[in-house]
Each structure stands twice: as structure tokens, then as C-alpha cells.
Amino acid sequence: MVPIAYYLVLSALLFSIGAGAFLIKRNIITVFMSIELMLNAVNLSFVAFAYQWHAIRGQIFVFFVMVVAAAEAAVGLAIIIAVYRTRNTLNVDQIDLMKL
């Protein structure tokens, strides 16, 4: 059996990659994809834990997370389109009209 630690490490790694991509990438769509990557990393850890506890609840959670992620994608893309229409750019560094 694959020890659970491996799954957790993989999940953490994916999560970090996602977070890192969020911080580094300049294209809004890519940044958005990195959020999806983070959510899916969490999905992985949920499934791993569900397997460990021999319970199904974790896997149900995963379904819900996927649904929510899809909804978020819809909303997010709509917002990105709104931004694109007004600023004509997909470069996240250029969306900085409001400064502190």
C-alpha cells in the first residue's frame, strides 16, 4: 500500500506549485488556472484521507469542491472578460489603477 504520507506530500507540492504560479505568472488566465490547481491539490488530499479513514465523506466533499470550482470558473471568466473589455489587457500587472 502507498503510505498516505506520499499523497499528502504530493498534494502539498501541487498546492505550492499552484500558489507559486499565482505569484509568478502575469497572465490572468494562467493565474486563474493556478487557483484551480490549488483546489485540485486539496481534492487529492481529501481523497487520500477518505481512503485512510475508510469513509466516503471525503469523496463526497470532492464532488462539492469540483462543483464549486466550476461555478467559480464561470464567475471568474465573466469578470476577466469585463476587465478585458475595459482595459484591453490580460496582464495582471497592468491592472493596478487603484493603489493604496
Partner: peptide, 8 residues
């Protein structure tokens, strides 16, 4: 413009 940026 600010509204879209804020939302993003």
C-alpha cells in the same frame, strides 16, 4: 473601470 478591477 474601477469596478471591474475591484472585482478581479
Amino acid at each position: 473601470v474601477h469596478s471591474a478591477e475591484a472585482a478581479l
